[in-house]
């Protein structure tokens, strides 16, 4: 039933090679530079969606990821603009800040389940936006603009990543950055889900009381999973702020939170790589339908409804009929 470990590694390497070598070649030869931006967005959104997927994995519906993306974007932007810190330091800082925030937010709200958790996280998205509007450090409604492009990253005098200003096409730089991060993220996610901790998390999804009764530390696991999820949201948001060189309170709103969730649903909740596929299909589908003008939303939503009717368990469930490993 399961392909061998070697085959999986090979598959992943081929996939990475396609993304990192073939796709840039194709884009360069067809001169479709706009695709860099689109694919970068897909990569970043799928990182954030992977976080949402992880909370689904422990049995929670998370509609609050946009809040962490927003926080991550602001942390990075404030550090870069107001304190002149290199972007490469602010990136992990943004993620860690979000993880710390999520521990404090998560401690009380992770006790909630089902729709209650979903609703509180939805409300949290709104709270984050309003706090961004009210705090002086975020510059209110005008947001933070003119964020400089990331500079060079040097370790012991060795230039690891060149200054984005010196690149002839900074979009290309962001593409590589996002795709590499996405690959690392999903690799890590795959490892996590298939580790001992992943098994324990899966037990939470099925029955928390039972898991608790046989000695699983459920509150610890919930917090850790939620913190990882928020970390990913913060990373995604921070890079987004760097690409668009601006961040506003409305950069990430409720609609984004819902989209992150939809990406997971569409790809399939039972599959680690579901969020990646879901994000890709949703984002490209929406972009591609742009040519239909005012019927864009109508066609888009009709296709979504039709997909739900045909494949209620996500796109990835089509390839593996009868494979019910993760529920």
């Amino acid at each position: 039933m399961m392909p061998g470990k070697l085959a999986k590694t090979a598959g992943f390497l081929i996939y990475a090679a396609i993304l990192l070598i073939l796709v840039p070649r194709l884009i360069d030869s067809y001169e479709r530079w706009d695709l860099y931006y689109t694919l970068t967005s897909v990569a970043l959104l799928s990182i954030a969606s992977a976080g949402v997927w992880l909370t689904f994995f422990i049995g929670r519906i998370n509609i609050g990821q946009a809040a962490y993306a927003l926080i991550g974007g602001y942390v990075s932007a404030v550090m870069v603009v107001d304190h002149g810190i290199s972007f490469w330091w602010t990136l992990p800082a943004a993620g860690l800040f979000c993880a710390v925030v999520s521990v404090f937010v998560g401690l009380p709200i992770l006790r909630l389940r089902g729709v209650y958790f979903a609703m509180v996280t939805l409300v949290f998205t709104e709270v984050a936006k309003m706090v961004a509007l009210a705090l002086p450090i975020t510059h209110g409604a005008s947001g933070i603009v003119n964020i400089p492009l990331p500079g060079a990253l040097e370790i012991f005098g060795f230039t690891l990543i060149p200054d984005f200003n010196t690149l002839d096409n900074s979009r290309r730089g962001f593409y590589f950055l996002s795709v590499v991060l996405m690959l690392i993220c999903f690799l890590g996610m795959y490892r996590l889900v298939h580790s001992r901790m992943g098994r324990l998390c899966f037990s939470l999804q099925q029955n928390e009381e039972l898991a608790s009764s046989i000695g699983v530390n459920i509150s610890y696991l919930r917090i850790v999973a939620y913190a990882i999820s928020s970390f990913l949201g913060g990373i995604g948001g921070a890079i987004f702020a760097a690409i668009s060189q601006s961040v506003y309170p409305s950069s990430f709103a409720v609609a984004d939170s819902i989209n992150f969730m939809l990406n997971c649903f569409l790809g399939g909740l039972g599959y680690v790589f579901g969020p990646m596929l879901g994000t890709f299909v949703l984002y490209f589908g929406w972009d591609w339908l742009f040519q239909t003008g005012k019927y864009q939303l109508l066609i888009f939503s009709s296709i979504l409804i039709a997909l739900m009717l045909v494949l209620p368990n996500g796109l990835l469930s089509i390839r593996l009929p009868g494979w019910k490993k993760n529920g």
């Binding site: 689904f56 969730m261 569409l266 909740l269 939303l297 979504l304 409804i305 739900m308 209620p312 529920g327």
Partner: peptide
């Protein structure tokens, strides 16, 4: 009704509900 009957996790209805919301918005 058909989606609830066939989906593995009942949260799947949320995607359907959101899609219906988009659809009604468009209409």
């Amino acid at each position: 009704r058909p989606v609830i009957r066939r989906s593995v996790r009942e949260e799947s209805t949320m995607l359907l509900a959101a899609a219906i919301a988009f659809f009604l918005d468009a209409v």
